[in-house]
Design a protein around this nucleic acid. Sequence first.
DNA 1: ATGGTAGCGCTGCTA
Length: 264
Amino acid sequence: MRIATWNVNSLKARLPRVEEWLDYAQPDVLCLQETKMADGDFPAMAFASRGYEAAHHGLGRWNGVAILSRVGLEEVRAGFSGQLPEQVTEARLVSATCGGVRVASLYVPNGRSVGSEHYEAKLAWLDSLQHHLEEACDPAGPLALCGDFNIAPDDRDVWDPSSFQGATHVSEPERQALKGLLSWGLVDAFRTRYDQEGLFSWWDYRAGDFHQHRGMRIDLILLTRPLAERVTFALIDRFARKGKQPSDHAPVLVDVADGWRQGP
DNA sequence: ATGGTAGCGCTGCTA
């Protein structure tokens, strides 16, 4: 099964690029973030015509997450476990079961600056995600947590660690929150295949950062062990960051070999 | 150079 994630920075602006990418990358499941649209504007037909069912959770001009699947889409849920619909004020998490895998598409708050109220809200959101895992998920089951985590797991995931002193995305509390998710029973799938530095998934639009190789790896696919043990291929598709009207993020994909379905 | 670009939507916010 090929599982992918992509922060598209407006699905309206990016739809032609997403359609093109679906056609050549052929993911079985694609998680999208920052669709920046309400559910009523979601272009479901563009995906249905390619064989993808879709679940979208969006409230308007900010955030917005979706899951596209051509291997089934069941038990769709927006927000955290136990969260009532009226408690969901930002569209940052949607989950569904696709081909036997519980898939979550998530968009962690940016945090803006360390110590700000937005930063505290980011840490609180990550804490809610941790509780969601503990209450609603099973580390022994097939689970894929995909999305824009707005955290670079390690110094090798940023272009220049010294220039990120005191910045968000690399602070110790953020990295500890990510480690908490991993300790629960998740594996950073990309790192099962590559250990080099300088492999990024996001580059600021400004100052020519992409062409200067100034980026960060903040878009992650976290898999429970039954899936992580069967990763055969992983890729950050930098070609999708080039050309006409690219997102500032590249898609990330992993292939998981069959066999994890076999239970005891 | 404390800069720069993109998206939304129409003013300034978000990233």
